[in-house]
Nucleic acid binder design. Structure first.
Lengths: 196, 196
DNA sequence: GTCTATACCCTGATAGAC
DNA sequence: GTCTATCAGGGTATAGAC
């Protein structure tokens, strides 16, 4: 496991990230983290201040990766519509859900400001970034002049987060794709040719 | 607690429903259920076959209530747009999230077909019901003729589910309302007067 | 840095008295 | 129907040897 990660510390963070993604904070135990990282009890408490400290490191790292992945598409080439579409249709492990958004449903993450902060910042950044792209599209005459970039961006980010819920409920990625398709169709009036 | 509920059995189900809503299946213990219901250990195991059986009863009941609440709006008076808008803007305890959709993020619910089934059926029913309303709106010329009712309905249900994520991440209902406003604006072209 | 030992409470469940 | 007793194991953490 994690054979490429030489540091015990890095393996612990990687294991924690996976478990938080799969089971949330409430459902993740230090014991499970140690088992997945191949590290002992003493080793874990030497490197981190318990489950909470480990979660802080893990959440920070996941937040960072989400931004990089989003920026790769939203800062890429193409029209505003193509960038938005690229983000919505980017490859995702749909049935696993969002490693960051998932944490917002965990009662102990939401109750802890230090753990909630990176979640809030990341989703806030994503909405803002998307709003910027949409605003540019409006300025370019690509979208309807009356479109509110902030509200539209929030709706699109919500479609993605809610798409995961629909997909997991039906144990199939199809529901996610249907929701995204519906959102993109509403976002028009980009002509089908532009949509390529 | 639950003073109106005379049956121990009913109090146990009510307590389980609340805890599943707040903490999910993974985060809910029989002990916590008993404490909230004001019931003893033996009492709980007399009425139900453990945590799993209790969860089955609780999820079924929550699913039923969600349908009733949705039907009250979607089957109510008004144009298709008004019905959809009524559903999206219906009063919600936004920071608590969706009592049914929330379960789709729980690893043990998703891994258990008996527990996942009511979640899938309820969200599926909701998408279908909303698609019916939208389809009627298209037939009435209220919405664009090219609108795909199923995909649009899925997108709107996803906006609600994802809106909860955004709201909880920022510890404020505002993000939910922004996302819903963005979605309704995209859904137009109902004129503002019609939107009343 | 990593290990084992230990602590103390919680979890999910069963047994049997009342 | 409800109670208390009990159980084997897990959750989270500390102590101290190596």
């Amino acid at each position: 496991m994690y054979s490429r990660l030489v540091n015990t510390s890095e393996r612990l963070v990687a294991a924690t990230r996976e478990l938080l993604w799969e089971r949330g904070y409430v459902g993740t135990s230090p014991r499970a983290i140690q088992a997945r990282a191949g590290a002992g009890q003493g080793s874990m408490y030497h490197h981190f201040a318990g489950k909470h400290g480990l979660a802080l490191a893990a959440v920070g790292r996941s937040a960072e990766e989400l931004r990089e992945a989003a920026e790769a598409v939203l800062g890429g080439p193409g029209t505003a519509y193509q960038q938005v579409r690229g983000y919505l249709l980017r490859e995702r492990d749909v049935l696993r859900g969002c490693p960051v958004g998932r944490l917002a449903m965990d009662p102990e993450i939401v109750a802890d400001d230090a753990l909630r902060a990176p979640v809030e910042e990341t989703l806030g950044w994503l909405c803002d970034r998307l709003a910027g792209v949409i605003g540019q599209g409006v300025a370019d005459g690509e979208f309807d002049r009356g479109l509110d970039p902030e509200a539209t961006a929030a709706a699109l980010v919500a479609v993605v987060q809610g798409g995961y819920v629909l997909a997991r409920a039906s144990a199939s990625p199809a529901a996610f794709e249907t929701a995204v398709r519906g959102a993109l169709a509403l976002l028009g009036p980009a002509a089908p040719e532009t949509a390529r």
